[in-house]
Design a protein around this nucleic acid. Structure first.
Lengths: 333, 333
DNA sequence: GTGAAAGCGCTAACAC
DNA sequence: GTGTTAGCGCTTTCAC
């Protein structure tokens, strides 16, 4: 069926060792033999069997990327960048979806291992420290994003508290006094940090924290944002600004406010988080926190590759990547 | 390092064969031995080395999914569904991005092979028949989407001509007479079929086809839609309706029209294609063609699995999955 | 420089 | 029912 090293060797009249040397770019091969091997390689259309090679080398040649859902724009964008970064370094990437549930995340983590992949980038949403027994059979793991678990594992993320604080500070700077938040969710690491930033900014601007202005959200989808916004607008005194924990929630909030006939940002200013491409094209365009996703992807791939190569030093490195506030129409930019 | 079958066998005091039998769920194993093996399995935390298993079985255990870009919502959504469908059947999926260029598509196709994956789902954008020499080293290939290449390869897609025709028919049914199209692109298979549907609907309704009403688009991103719309609105007699070849283009068109102060749908009605989740939340919400993506993903996975198992019969099957027209605010629903 | 041969972890004949 | 063994395609000592 498929052409093997042995076939090529027979055709070229040399041993498999010589063919292997040529295939792997080993320098010292007699020119005459090299020529014959290359010719045989070409005529047979030989392609190395990666499975066999990796079995022998004790590696798999694959990296895994674990994300909640690919149909969430943030993860679609991030996965695309991770794939590009990995491809540049010659790695193929296996993607696993967890739907952001702890069970699926734990199972996925457990299923990863040296036999399947050589390293993994994981973006947990609900995982807890206890779920990292032996970190996935010993393969290098790099955590992506804000869900900080108290384990000595590499992590790359933006400063979420500061980012959330920056967004809310911006809202307060507009003169808004009743600034709401959408996205409270005890099960998500994301929520804690963005809440902390929200509270810090309120305090800093002398605004009081009010429970009724904090709306929970289950999945961080657009529909959740719309529902939360409707609840907020039904308050005796509705908010004059809303900070949403991601762009999807903000888009939903935008939609709900529009449906209620509110003017944005005059009646209510809205800010999001993630800078999905969608945010620059919705009406009104959305003010948001823009993490440098390319830097995130590159840093994570770089880190996991260094760990695999055994180069990295400290065990639980934390790399912070930059972000920026993008002011757009929804806050009157 | 990692626990092997042999380790388990030694611990349980049986042969590797027996352990293998237990691991693979072979029925006839003496209860006593089964118990001992299971105990050894548990204490060692054994996990089969997939690479070795697949090398032996002559397969890899992986499927590949080739798409243009994961950060395009349609592909993000589709990839998510494909992953889910594949996972249900126990397959891991490798994702490859091509950016929709013929070179990258050809290279990716060539890199796929029996040594890397057992089958592949490919969503080409620019590939031509000549690029399918030996269909990727003989592994089963299933084409996703409308880009019809004249090769005997399985394909699953919706009836694009009819879908486009349905959308334009709807626009004409609103009484619109100058219906434009955005998305003309000679290099994309998508374009041909949607153009055909557009022309058919115009003819059917007695509307004349006018070149100036057909705007080209390069990448089908939001910015392309906005640019095309601006050009259309600059016409001496601008269109009163626009059919965009995907939702991203439509969102861009929506944005451009809004920026020009136009009322939608009163001044200009807009329809898209794909039913991205975004379309139900933008302002105004977008009328669009909604392909049944779940059916598409399931059918494709099902087909490729049957081919791998050697079950399928005819060589170049074409499976058509359903679609529906979703009427929303942008056409006055 | 190159060949022969061992062996990565697993499955599948084939014996017992 | 279970053990022994060969071998999937490759890399890699180790001789020559």
């Amino acid at each position: 069926m498929a052409v093997t090293l042995k076939d090529v060797a027979r055709l070229a009249g040399v041993s498999v060792k010589t063919v292997s040397n040529v295939v792997n770019g080993y320098a010292f091969v007699k020119p005459e033999n090299r020529r014959r091997v290359e010719e045989a390689l070409a005529t047979t259309g030989y392609r190395p069997n990666l499975g066999a090679r990796n079995l022998r080398r004790g590696r798999t040649g694959f990296l895994a990327l674990m994300v909640p859902e690919l149909n969430i724009p943030y993860f679609g964008e991030l996965a695309g960048l991770v794939l590009t970064a990995a491809q540049k370094r010659g790695w193929a990437v296996l993607i696993e979806q967890t739907q952001g549930t702890r069970d699926r995340e734990r199972d996925t983590l457990a299923s990863l291992g040296p036999h399947l992949v050589d390293g993994a980038l994981v973006h947990p949403e609900a995982l807890e420290a206890a779920d990292f027994p032996d970190p996935s059979g010993g393969i290098p793991l790099v955590m992506l994003g804000e869900h900080a678990v108290d384990v000595p594992i590499d992590r790359v993320a933006i400063d979420n508290v500061l980012a959330a604080r920056t967004a809310v500070r911006h809202l307060a700077g507009l003169g808004r006094r009743r600034i709401a938040a959408i996205g409270l969710n005890a099960a998500r690491g994301t929520s804690d940090q963005r809440m902390a930033g929200y509270r810090a900014a309120l305090a800093e601007r002398g605004l009081s924290y009010e429970d009724e202005l904090v709306a929970p959200a289950e999945k961080y989808h657009r529909a959740d944002g719309a529902a939360a916004m409707r609840a907020l607008l039904a308050l005796p005194t509705p908010p004059d600004a809303v900070f949403c924990f991601n762009d999807l929630l903000a888009i939903g909030a935008l939609r709900a406010a529009t449906e209620c006939g509110l003017r944005i940002p005059e009646d209510v200013a809205i800010a999001g988080f993630d800078n999905n491409e969608e945010s620059a094209f919705c009406t009104p365009t959305l003010t948001t926190i823009a993490p440098d996703k390319t830097a995130l992807a590159e840093a994570a791939i770089d880190l996991v590759c260094r760990r695999i190569a055994g180069e990295a030093s400290a065990p639980g490195q934390y790399i912070q990547t930059p972000f920026a506030l993008k002011v757009r129409e929804s806050t009157g930019g």
